[in-house]
Design a protein around this nucleic acid. Sequence first.
DNA 1: CAAGATACGTCAATATGGCTGACATAAACT
DNA 2: AGTTTATGTCAGCCATATTGACGTATCTTG
Lengths: 182, 182
Amino acid sequence: MADINFSSPQAASDSRAAESRPSPARDGALRWDIIELLFFAYRDFVGDADHELEAFGFGRAHHRVMHFVYRYPGLKVADLLDVLRITKQSLGRVLKQLLDEGYIVQKTGNNDRRQRLLYATAKGEALVARLATLQTTRIDRALEQIGPAGAETVRRFLRAMIDRDDPDKVLETIFGAASAKE
Amino acid sequence: MADINFSSPQAASDSRAAESRPSPARDGALRWDIIELLFFAYRDFVGDADHELEAFGFGRAHHRVMHFVYRYPGLKVADLLDVLRITKQSLGRVLKQLLDEGYIVQKTGNNDRRQRLLYATAKGEALVARLATLQTTRIDRALEQIGPAGAETVRRFLRAMIDRDDPDKVLETIFGAASAKE
DNA sequence: CAAGATACGTCAATATGGCTGACATAAACT
DNA sequence: AGTTTATGTCAGCCATATTGACGTATCTTG
């Protein structure tokens, strides 16, 4: 559509607006490429699930809750709040929907009867598996293109991108398992 | 905090709720580990910027707009809509704020005077650079742990995670530049 | 046992950032 | 002159997040 007024990155600094000053030299030291690749990769990665969720009348929030409840059976509400980093009021609505519609069930804790331990039902498992299958397809396709050793490199990179101070229980499990994966 | 009712992934399938059925065998073929690592890595990655943005009274939406306007000077409004995949009404509010507060300026297109080409001001550049610096610190820290060859593996992985059909102009630039980076 | 802390639920109000639909204007194209 | 395109804007709706307050059951502790 129309002409090419779409310059390459930083190639048109001379055409900057009046108030604009030449870009600082530190610019080259920044990881612009990876920053942008992460943006697009994550956008498309969650896009897979978003599209499918529409058919269920659910949003991203429902996916996140279902995923972690399925993966870590018996998760407490408080743990879920830590992982998702949202307030219990926000979680409340989404969780209530998933309970009402039979995707998740609650069980009173054995040791502490105040706790409501969360478990995915068969219906919930089916949903999570369907979404994970979509995302796995994308991941497998990407991993194919970087060779067998690449997968471990990617895992190590992603792990190193995650904050290690004040980890929640899910992260403790993930990092605790270390390389004892699969 | 209290007892350990936090099972390892899939280790507590026997304690599932009544309606729950044993997990299907396909479970093992799914990339649970990478799915979760991507979630946490991206959460913390954008968290760096989120925290800083609060001081400016801005949100993630402002960051995304500022980033791409800075990186691709002279971006048209329509291009920005393609990249961000939002409607012009949504963009409108955010963009107006950034214009009013002097982070971005508009310039009428030379060839087509209907177009409003977008440019970051010095003020805008400073903001983008500050946020990119935070994120670069995290990325550099992660790359250090996977060796020099790892960075290119990560780039190739992320590129392969992105949809190639119907790419917007920014993606065309990114993929067009191929390995002619930096 | 009584007091306090904890786990969870919920009501109410508010903000952000998406969305659709409709309509307006200016400029380009035919 | 008429149509299409690029942009802006008004009005309203929805999803998801927030804070603050309050209630209730249950565990812990003096």
